[in-house]
Nucleic acid binder design. Sequence first.
DNA 1: GGTTCTCATCAAACCAGTTTCATGCGCGCC
DNA 2: GGCGCGCATGAAACTGGTTTGATGAGAACC
Lengths: 245, 245
Amino acid sequence: MPGQNSCLVDKLSHYIRLDDSHRAHLAGIEKSERNYPASAEIYQGGDPARDLYVVKRGWLFSYTDLPDGRRQVVKIHHPGDIVGFPDVALKHVTTTLRTAEEVCLCPFPKSALDVIFRESPRLSALLLSIALRDQVVFIDLLRAMGRMNAQERVVYMLLDLIARLRITNSAMTDTMRLPLTQSQIADYLGLTNVYISRTFLRLEKDGYIQRTGDGVHLLREDDLIDMTDFYDRYADMDTSWFPEN
Amino acid sequence: MPGQNSCLVDKLSHYIRLDDSHRAHLAGIEKSERNYPASAEIYQGGDPARDLYVVKRGWLFSYTDLPDGRRQVVKIHHPGDIVGFPDVALKHVTTTLRTAEEVCLCPFPKSALDVIFRESPRLSALLLSIALRDQVVFIDLLRAMGRMNAQERVVYMLLDLIARLRITNSAMTDTMRLPLTQSQIADYLGLTNVYISRTFLRLEKDGYIQRTGDGVHLLREDDLIDMTDFYDRYADMDTSWFPEN
DNA sequence: GGTTCTCATCAAACCAGTTTCATGCGCGCC
DNA sequence: GGCGCGCATGAAACTGGTTTGATGAGAACC
């Protein structure tokens, strides 16, 4: 059965201890799963917002297009993430979801949240906190987009991605896979593919990173953190005010 | 007594009908109030995240600074807004809060949310939805910052501000006060005060807007909406999945 | 093994927005 | 009423990132 090791439970139990009833609620969410090939479009901006997806395997990203073709990637999704969460508030989804490689997703209807809110104030508070924490992450990204130059933005992205991967894989070192094209990275950071290429070459030449295939190795992480004034928003959350169960 | 007309109740009841018990919970939140002069700093990034504030009167904004002095304004707050909401998830606040003019705030401890989560699943779901809707708003802003030029960004900001003001003041026309300096607007949009000045002059010359003191009048709102592919995220939310009470 | 396609890199002209400094208006303050 | 200051505007040099088009390497597909 799926769910015997649930990415979602892994990710959430990083923040609060989950008892059996909590796990039961979450298991109900991850009961079906589906595979998608690389570069597949899963839904499109404007579609009715009905389902959410827990990522079980692989990378995806969400983006919006301007009418004239300019594109902004707004979120890069990893295993354990809940994809489509912001659109729960609206009747129609606001972004297009596309796979970066082969992925496996667990879809569930957003009406499943109703049960959680009725039965577990504690889990509800955790969901709110995750939504609010994600707002802080968007604020950090906004700061990078508004006030950082190209090199700082690239470094910021690398630090953010690796911090997120470390939540569920604490054994992770300073190396990660980066299965995105330079055009996709450019659309994420508000730059061009040409300049992303130049910036990566520069970072490599200056000894900040090392690349091998689609792998990236951060060589002087402390310097990179200083360069971007980076702060890890994923490691600690304030759960002190949460209700008991 | 304060609370006889609560900005917060006004704003929330735009989305769901609030019964007496809901109103009682919210009234508990707005029971104390405090005034601040213009250009006052209310809290600073790094302070412990203890209180939230409901805005009763006046404009404020939240910002972060980079170590070298670059500044990013991340949110502009109006009456009815809950200020500091994203920081509920964290132990320390991530932004600095400053008044743009004289304001009146109702502070309340974030532990007050505990009662709401224990006693009203419906109000809890609304809080989550607002947090998620605000994520969508940040995503829209991110798109503007990443892929729009200066003129489009300014127009986007004007449309967003007026859409938010219309929630609580449906009688509002196409004119609003804009009590922000051009430097503050520049720090919000990732531009410079000089270029904000040039852009406003250009918009005025091209007949898109008209300015009088700190008032802005949108002359051809449909054209402005087309120019930025703007969508109002405040008008409708999907509350269909909310629990009963 | 050749064809095709995607992707990273290179190069050079170009431009949107920055930087810096000067001017002038309006407002609060003594 | 005059002083000082914050703020919008103007002008000109400058630059970080864009645009366009060419090249080459690797992977997928018959």
